[in-house]
Amino acid sequence: METRQRRIGRWLRALGACLFAGLLAAVPAPDAGAEYGDVVINNYSDAAGMRPVVFPHWFHRVRYACKVCHADLGFKFKAGGNEINMLKIIDGQYCGACHNGEIAWAIENCNLCHSAKPRTPTMVHESTTQGLAAQGRPAPSAARAAAKGQP
């Protein structure tokens, strides 16, 4: 009789553990749901008290071939890899080559670009590497640098 009660108790405890594990699994994964290719750029924005910038690739590639920005304007293929600041933009470099009030709307519309939620990190959203970064793995270049650093 007593052993049977103990067995039921153990079974109930196991059931409880399972339910707890199920609850843990149900915690939603960080899921931005951004449009494929949306780039958040937060090199200086947060520190300066501005919202980070969202660059929508899809909107721009309808209107311009990749080459215009990535060859002619010198944008590197790296989120956050271009040292863009507002001074350069005002001088007509990077975004400022078009966002000058002639080709596209001018920089007075701060929040049209600076529109991300505060503290959103720099990254290409919905990219294959985003899935890895979410699991805390270092980016390949960082991993290689670390490996090189070790004797």
Partner: peptide, 21 residues
């Protein structure tokens, strides 16, 4: 979409992907 800040008005002026595409 989870990355734009819905608290600012300008986010509603941006073209939604379904419209643009």
């Amino acid at each position: 979409d989870g990355i734009h800040d819905p608290a600012i008005e300008e986010v509603y002026m941006l073209q939604p992907p379904l419209t643009g595409l």
